[in-house]
Design a binder for these strands. Sequence first.
DNA 1: TTCGAATTATGATTTTTATCATGTTTTTCT
DNA 2: AGAAAAACATGATAAAAATCATAATTCGAA
Lengths: 237, 237
Amino acid sequence: MSSHSHNTPCELCASRKHSLFSDLPEQHLCTISDHKNLISHRKGQILYYEGTNPLGIFCINSGVVKIYKTASNGKEQIIHLAKKGDFLGYAALLGEENYTNSAMIIEDAKICFVPKNAFLATLTKNTEFFKKVTKAISHELGEMEAKLTDATQKSIRERLAFVLLQLADSYGIEGGGSQKIDLILSREEIAGIVGTATESVIRLLSEFKKDKLIELDGKKIIILDKRGLARLSDFYA
Amino acid sequence: MSSHSHNTPCELCASRKHSLFSDLPEQHLCTISDHKNLISHRKGQILYYEGTNPLGIFCINSGVVKIYKTASNGKEQIIHLAKKGDFLGYAALLGEENYTNSAMIIEDAKICFVPKNAFLATLTKNTEFFKKVTKAISHELGEMEAKLTDATQKSIRERLAFVLLQLADSYGIEGGGSQKIDLILSREEIAGIVGTATESVIRLLSEFKKDKLIELDGKKIIILDKRGLARLSDFYA
DNA sequence: TTCGAATTATGATTTTTATCATGTTTTTCT
DNA sequence: AGAAAAACATGATAAAAATCATAATTCGAA
């Protein structure tokens, strides 16, 4: 099910270039590298569950992970999608509390696990690295404030249009003037990102398609009219 | 309009006891104390605006401050209310970005301003303090995830009931089996916390009153039936 | 203390969104 | 390949919430 390998050094990791580890000195990188553990995960597998105790952090080498919270009505609110170079679980570790969300693989992934102690030791020894991690958390906090504001003050149509633009930014591949979102998401998952009912997403995507804003290529969405979606996504602009 | 005073040392500050500064060693506390600046603020005054550059952090000695974001439709989403012992603005400082929200005094306040350099220097010299600050930000992040999930998956009635319980926790004063929320908020501000229209809050408060869940004492709200509100605030429980 | 403005209140209406129902298509598993 | 399950689609309906309108009340400044 999952394959293990301790021996792919962080020093040679391509996804490290754009991660929090990007300018960690070799000496500290080795501490991490010596203790880490690369695991392959298949779509649908759970990385960790909300409410459990974090034992370390995850570093995504490839693939996509959804970070979500299960509401009391059973629906999933997707907090964000994490991909190559992203770190997971450091907030719970630094907040000294159990995971406040769950993580599930949505595109086959290779993920390194760095045990708590190795991570915290590096943090303590290297203030620059600590600052970088804290900077990332602070930035996330600002993003969450914006998401909350959008959730309460914007319509579903506006939010879906905005989500499509964001997905295009993160997962878009160019092709003849248009951009294809190269990520398979179910309508239910898109609903989980937007924070609405699955049927509403299906209906609105049909509408967007009819209005020539998007096009469907199997399960993938092609953005035809970025400007149009941008106009839809906000009250002004 | 605002009175200044450099000479109330942090060492003697009562609100410090329950703040991030609570177990900062005297040596570092003095660095902070020597550079800080106590200012009195009146209701309605702005502490800082979203989009501006943070020059330091704020430490609330007394009073209440609302932290909010202005949505594109002009409405305010209140992120949280800060009171005695709370710190403001450190996330923007540590995230090395402009303020992602604005802060306005809603109950006359005395607030210390600690310049950026004094704060950052203390952070760098004292890893324990740094960890404590990071822990606070991480915790806030988890709370924001919960708020986002509530905003998208719960009804306005549920959210208002929950907000009233939270306000009672933070600002409640006991009195004959019931609890009075000792904080003056306009209906519009309550709507800003819940993330809804002002009229909806007014209507629901009337409903809660009719159902003997709350009672009004001038502008202040008295919680009569905590259990009833708790039942209303969630799908189960 | 009184006048004007802001806030609170309530009703009517419209819009938005969720839910329910049902059929079709696509995946998945054997 | 074929059956079962899951996902997608669309219509009908109901529920939730926003908006608009209009009073009544409270508050604040002259």
